[in-house]
């Protein structure tokens, strides 16, 4: 339940909502918790919010792992459907 996954910020609107790309799926997440985040930053995303800005190197590595082995295959979907 406390899983967070890396995503890259593509754009940010006036309301501090960012469009991010998570494994090819575009989602809108809040940047309320990461005021320092700018476009192109990598962030850890959890339930519609960016929790932390992270190093690109780590983000890419984590995504590769997530892609290669569906670690949480029968858990909550990593990329949930729009509600």
């Amino acid at each position: 339940m406390c899983l967070a996954i890396p995503a890259r910020i593509a754009s940010i609107d006036d309301n501090r909502m960012a469009t991010v790309d998570i494994l090819g799926v575009s989602r809108v997440v809040s940047l309320d918790l990461v005021p320092e985040a700018v476009v192109d930053d990598w962030v850890l995303v959890h339930a519609g919010f960016a929790l932390q800005v992270i190093e690109e190197e780590y983000a890419v590595e984590t995504l590769e792992l997530l892609k290669s082995v569906p670690f949480f295959e029968d858990q909550e979907p990593l990329i949930a459907e729009e509600a």
């Binding site: 406390c2 809040s30 309320d32 918790l33 959890h46 339930a47 519609g48 919010f49 929790l51």
Partner: peptide
């Protein structure tokens, strides 16, 4: 329902 990971989201 959750821990510190989720609490800031709720607050926000």
């Amino acid at each position: 329902v959750g821990f510190e990971t989720t609490a800031p989201l709720i607050a926000s």
